[in-house]
Amino acid sequence: MEDLLTKHYGLQPERSFKDGRDQRYMADGSIYTIVNVTKMEQDALLELYKITEHMKKYGDRYVSSFVPTTEGRFLVSENEQDFTVLKNEYHSGDPGDRLGRKLAKFHQRGLAIEEKVSHISRIGQWKSLWEKRIEQMEKAFQLVIENRPGDEFERIFIDSCPYYLGLAENAVQYLVDTEMDDNPVYTDSGTVCHERFLEGVWGREISIRNPFDWVFDHCGRDIAESVRERYFKRQTTHQPDIQKFFREYQSVAPLSSFSWRLVYARLLFPLHYFETIENYYLSNSEGQHFQLEDKLQGYLNSTRQYERFLGSFYQIGEVPVKSYGIPAVTWLG
């Protein structure tokens, strides 16, 4: 891959290093990342390019820039694969420091996008995407029952699936009620979010905001996925960390009642369970199967704890539920 930088960009990388899941290359004091874009539509790439330019214009110095080749093109082909190259300047400091504040500022910049975003947009699509996932899970469940569970993972899946399907349907209903009962404000407009805003997505060794991690959505998407990860990392001691994250975020951008309810709906939807089942059936690796079985068993062993977390979520978030008129989910807690 290093040859691609020399051949098409005239760069001589001095060293390469792994940062999170990405391979980075140092050349002339800057950091370069090669991205395979073979399966991406040209219009989606153009949309990402425009969004990165917007985010940089609004002061985000950590956002990657698309680099033209020596011939002025943004795409190169090698071995029937398409690639683009991203460039970042080196900025030291912990990417995870005061993450709540940084995320809120990132979302504020994204709110200012005036051009219509369509290719990477997920705005207003949660209900249909969740319902599709529920339908797929129901089909997988029926299939395993018909063929009889073949291993321990499938036996656990059969025992647990009805409960998690019920939880997912509750999340859909909570989302529908929110969209009917509550009124979004300006900060509930679409902004630049992440497919999954998890630890390390902005780099571990250095701060890099990679546009290929982005989707256009409600800010509650990133907030909820960060909170979900924080909860499962520290199931018994999650409260101080989650409160700190919310306080940091709201010191920049206070959340509306609509935002809080969307965050809650997303946490109610058991994405962690769905992804574990989906990843198991997508993988052919025996090692990964064992890991996912352990993960699934861990989720089942802590079902009651997660229910208690959901039941106390608004309290942890220090949300004024009465003045906001936020309804409780009565069976939790």
Rank of each mutant, 00 (worst) to 15 (best):
T33I: 14
L75M: 12
H119D: 12
Y49K: 07
S92A: 12
L86S: 07
Y249G: 04
L262T: 04
E131P: 03
E293M: 12
L268A: 13
F258R: 03
S251T: 09
V85K: 10
F290P: 00
E114L: 02
D43W: 06
P68D: 05
F106T: 00
Q12M: 07
D181R: 08
R24F: 13
Y299S: 04
S226Q: 14
T69Y: 08
E286K: 10
R24Q: 14
K102Q: 15
S121I: 05
Q243W: 04
R73W: 03
I242P: 12
R155S: 09
S285W: 02
L111Q: 03
Y186R: 11
S226P: 04
I316G: 08
G110D: 14
I316T: 15
E71C: 03
L262H: 11
F274A: 09
Y280F: 11
L198C: 03
P211F: 10
D159T: 03
H54M: 08
M26D: 13
R133L: 06
L267Y: 05
P68Q: 06
G20Y: 12
M40D: 13
Y273L: 09
A171P: 04
T191H: 00
V35K: 15
S30F: 13
T178N: 03
P211C: 14
V172M: 03
G20P: 11
F17M: 08
K127N: 12
L268N: 06
S323W: 13
Y186K: 12
P254D: 01
